[in-house]
Design a protein around this nucleic acid. Structure first.
Lengths: 129, 129
DNA sequence: GTAAAGTCTATAGCTAGTATAGAGTCAACA
DNA sequence: TGTTGACTCTATACTAGCTATAGACTTTAC
């Protein structure tokens, strides 16, 4: 199949597929006579793996590490588990940050619930502090 | 004062201050004979306002809008309140997304708690799906 | 034969800075 | 007066993960 079909089947845009290839995430494939990229079922599986990882917000470098690990089936998978664990820690931390931000924003919001003039705006006054 | 002093007093790096100026957030100031930027107390106030907004994760464009609004003291401040409100909605939404991600990650993590071989790794198997 | 759809490469843009190179300025000290 | 060091200047490149574009080429359908 050509890149357009792979794009539809995988849900990645054509540019994204080419981008992954350039990043070394996604193997450069065979080309047709007219220099079109030609993919098969295994390309689709590989791309879906990448997409799955991206949906977990893993970085491209992390995904590369995973792919690298996958190529050594007899090695220990502890690096994979560690990566996921560390990622969970990061996400938890980020959530805490955003919760705090949300609190600040709600305090801001309640400083000026009604419609005032700019010079009397409670929000702007808080921002000046 | 020169940019180094402003940087220390504001907590913004020198490059960031120049960056804000280039973005039109922070007024280009007077220059000394030797072409050094010269600031005063009002520059510091303005920069602190920007920093406060950035700590709320407002974008540079949003801050520009706020500054623009501030220059019209007699207009209604509803746009300010709306901006903060919308921002809170966005943050709430993002928290929900991250909570879901966290759940997925924790399911992943529990798929392979022990130290296995790569080909038996529960995490990698889930990622293949 | 030709028009439309698809693909190719290369490049620029997005956010909010950070980091660098290479040059100029300024104050203090010998 | 010379020079050293700290400071500043502009311009440029880089970060992450794409997205969008230009201009050329290939393929398909009628």
């Amino acid at each position: 199949m050509k890149i357009g079909e792979l794009s539809k089947k995988s849900g990645c845009s054509i540019q994204t597929i080419r981008f992954y290839e350039k990043q070394g995430l996604f193997e450069a494939c065979n080309r047709s006579e007219g220099n079109y990229r030609i993919y098969d079922a295994s390309s689709l599986r590989a791309l879906r793996f990448i997409k799955q990882c991206r949906s977990l917000d893993l970085t491209i470098i992390e995904i590369k590490q995973l792919l690298d690990t996958k190529n050594n089936p007899d090695k220990s998978c502890s690096s994979v588990n560690n990566l996921i664990h560390q990622h969970m820690v990061d996400v938890t931390h980020r959530i805490a940050e955003l919760e705090e931000l949300k609190l600040t924003l709600s305090e801001m919001a309640s400083a000026c619930t009604d419609d005032r003039k700019v010079k009397e705006c409670g929000v702007l006054q808080l921002l000046e502090e």
